[in-house]
Design a protein around this nucleic acid. Structure first.
Lengths: 141, 141
DNA sequence: TTTACCTTATAGCCTATTGCATATTATTTC
DNA sequence: GAAATAATATGCAATAGGCTATAAGGTAAA
């Protein structure tokens, strides 16, 4: 067992990360919706996330407060520069994790599901290790 | 972008998994404390998790209700058979994820931190892929 | 055995995340 | 331009997870 301080620090770190999961998911999804050309409406976001529209409305208040999105009334949601930057980081990470799982031989459906959960907890260092493994091709079957 | 149904299902799946994270962490930690010979007291658990004792007390109510632990007053916490089974599953998964990251070349500290976050979202299928990769040694550097 | 300490319980408060039901406000269409 | 429709807003409730402060119950040592 690790010493109390490290373990405690680890758990604190994980709790901290958990608080950002929703924000990351929203920002990534909004960016995807905008990139696909359609507008990002509350109802679209709600459908994609599988939650109700009021739930989305409440989260958007938070996203606006934290400076990631702006809203044009009845015209949908838009990303600020900070939101765009976050979206790009998150999407790149998400894709890399999913690609890595696929390269490992995990089936497509599982890779998608697992990546959705894991992505938020993969550090830059680990991401770099994934990237290296992919590049050197050691995982190919 | 995935179709609405799959994406929605993915997010639902992740939300579901998030609800079990704390239970898994508690059960794994309690098992570790008991295995180390010491008793698993509320204060010990609180120290390890980096939360307050009342927070632990509240969570223990839930763990008892869900049938994972029992309590001997002023003698600490104990695992039921279900709790023990869960603990073993969780610990095996946790260790495998951490070992895998180490084998990939991730440094020890990062591997510990990332594994703590990722472990709860790694499916059996992905776990099996990790195991295979470790066994075939393709990751050794 | 009585006090001091350790352990647990309880009360009250807070934030976050979800839901449902129901307004309200734009936009469109006829 | 008025009615239908789409988009948002809001009120109320529930669950989860966290905190501080304080009380109370056992254990053990002087």
């Amino acid at each position: 067992m690790p010493d109390v301080e490290s373990q405690c620090e680890g758990f604190r770190h994980a709790r901290e990360a958990r608080r950002n999961v929703l924000i990351e998911d929203y920002v990534e999804l909004i960016d995807d919706l905008l990139t696909e050309g359609q507008e990002a409406r509350q109802v679209d976001i709600a459908d994609r996330l599988g939650v109700s529209q009021p739930t989305v409305a409440k989260m958007l208040v938070r996203l606006v407060a934290e400076g990631f999105v702006t809203r044009k009334p009845y015209r949908g949601i838009f990303l600020t520069d900070a939101g765009l930057a976050l979206a790009e980081t998150v999407r790149a990470r998400h894709q890399l994790v999913e690609e890595f799982l696929l390269a490992l031989g995990v089936d497509a459906v599982t890779a998608r599901l697992d990546a959705e959960g894991m992505e938020h907890f993969v550090s830059d260092a680990t991401l770099e290790a994934f990237r290296t493994a992919l590049k050197t091709g050691v995982l190919r079957r």
